[in-house]
Simulated assay, not measured.
Amino acid sequence: MRFAVSCGDIGGIGPEIIIKSVQRFYHLNKRFSYILNLPYDIFVEEYRTAGADFPYYVVRELEGLKLPFHPVIILDLPAGKIEKNRFGKDSRAGGDISYMSILRSFEQCRKGICDAIVTAPISKTSMKLAGLKYHGHTELLAKLDKARFHSMFFLSDNFVANLFTIHIPVNQISTKITKPELRKFFLHSLATLKNDFLIRKPRVAVLGLNPHAGENGLIGKEEKNVLSPVIEEFGTYMYGPFVPDAFFANSLYNEFDLVTGMYHDQVLIPFKMLNFNSGVNYTSGLSVIRTSPDHGTAFDIAGKNCADPSSMMSAFLWAEKVSKSRKKSFAAS
C-alpha cells in the first residue's frame, strides 16, 4: 500500500513523527511505500536527527517516473524563505508549505498514484499568515474533493466517535441542530460504518447537547424536540440522547460501534484522555482515504527529537484498514 504523506507545519513535530514512523515500519518489515511531500532540506535535517537509516529516493516531480516506485520517495517541495530556527512557532512559510503538501498529497491519491493520504498536524495560525482561510484539514480536503457530505471521525481500539458540528463557536451549536441536518448526518454515519468499517448492523450512541441531556426539556429543548424524535426514526441503529458525563463515567461506549457528539470538546476530551498517543482522526465522506494523528503541532517539544510517533503510526494502520474495507465493500456491491 502506498501513502501520500503531507508534512504538516514545519515549526511543529510533523516531519519528525513522519520519519520516525517510516523508520519503525521499515524495521518491522511492514511493506508500506510512501511519497513524503516536504522540502528536502527539512527531510534531511529530521532524518539525521532521528538517526534514521531507511533508503529513500528524491525527486522534484513525479511525472515520468515508472512504477513500481521506490518504497520511500521524497517529493522535494520549494521551501521559500524559512527561518533558521523554525521550531516552536507559527510562520507564513509553515502555512505555505503545509498547504502545498496537502495539495500534492491529494492529487497523488486522486490520480491513483497513492492509496491513502496521511496528514501531519497543521497550524491554523500559520495557514492564516499564509493568507489561507481554512480551519483545518477536514474542511480543505472536503472542498478539494467536492464532497457532498463529510464528517470528522475519531478512531481507536477503545471507541470510535464522530462530531455533528466541528470547528464552530459554542454559541452557534444549538442553531445547527435541526431535524433535516441530523437525518443527513445519521445516514452518513451509518453508511460510513457499513462501507469503511464493514459493520453491517451498527449501533450508534448519540450524546445530548445540554446538561443532563436536557432533563426532559427543563434544561434546554434540543433533546426533547429534535434529537429524540430523529433518533427514534432510526430504530435499532440509533440510541440516546445520553447524558454525556454519565455515559463516559460508566464506559457505555463499550456497548456501541460509534459515539456521536454534538460538539468538538464533548467528544475530544474523553477521547484524548483514553487515546492520546494512539487516537486517529479520519475524514469520512471523501472519495480518497485520509487519516491523521489525533494531536496538534506540539510546538512546545518541536526540534527536541522527543515526539512520540505512536498516533502517526496508528494513522497509517487505520488507513490500511479502511482501504481494505472499501475494497471489500466495492467487491460485494
Rank of each mutant, 00 (worst) to 15 (best):
G235Q: 10
T165H: 03
P211E: 04
K176W: 11
L252R: 12
H150I: 11
F186G: 05
T192H: 12
L193Q: 05
L207A: 09
N162D: 10
N158Y: 11
N254M: 11
D196L: 10
S156H: 04
L190V: 10
F186H: 00
P241V: 07
P211T: 08
N158Q: 12
I168S: 08
N162W: 07
E255D: 15
E232G: 00
K179V: 08
G235A: 09
G217A: 02
L209H: 10
K221M: 13
A246L: 14
K184P: 03
A191R: 14
E222Y: 03
F247W: 10
V243K: 11
E233R: 03
L198P: 04
D157G: 04
E255H: 10
T175W: 00
E233Y: 00
I199Q: 08
S156C: 03
V204P: 00
K179M: 13
E222D: 12
L252M: 14
N225P: 01
H167Y: 10
N195Y: 07
R183K: 13
E232I: 00
R203Q: 12
P180M: 07
K184H: 07
G217K: 03
D196P: 07
S174Y: 07
H212D: 03
D245K: 09
L227F: 04
E255N: 14
G240V: 03
N225G: 00
G220R: 04
M238V: 06
F185S: 09
L187Q: 14
A246S: 15
I219R: 04
K194H: 07
K179H: 04
M152D: 04
P229G: 04
P244K: 08
S156Q: 02
I231P: 01
D145N: 13
L209T: 12
F164A: 04
S189I: 05
H212P: 00
H150V: 14
I231W: 01
S156Y: 03
V170N: 09
T165V: 02
I219Q: 09
F248A: 10
L209R: 08
L193E: 06
T236A: 11
T236V: 06
T178I: 06
E215V: 01
I173Q: 10
L218M: 13
P244H: 09
T178F: 00
E233K: 02
M152S: 05
P244N: 10
I168M: 08
R183F: 07
D157C: 01
N162C: 15
L155S: 02
L207W: 06
D157M: 00
Q172R: 15
A205S: 06
A205K: 03
A147V: 06
A249L: 12
Y239R: 02
P180G: 09
S251F: 12
N158A: 07
T165Y: 01
N216R: 08
K224F: 00
G235C: 03
V170L: 15
G235N: 12
N250W: 06
L207S: 07
K224V: 09
N171H: 15
A161T: 01
L155D: 06
F248V: 11
N195W: 06
L218T: 13
L193F: 06
K184V: 00
F149N: 14
F153T: 02
N171S: 14
D245L: 08
P244L: 08
V230W: 02
R148F: 11
R203G: 05
F242W: 11
G208T: 09
F149A: 13
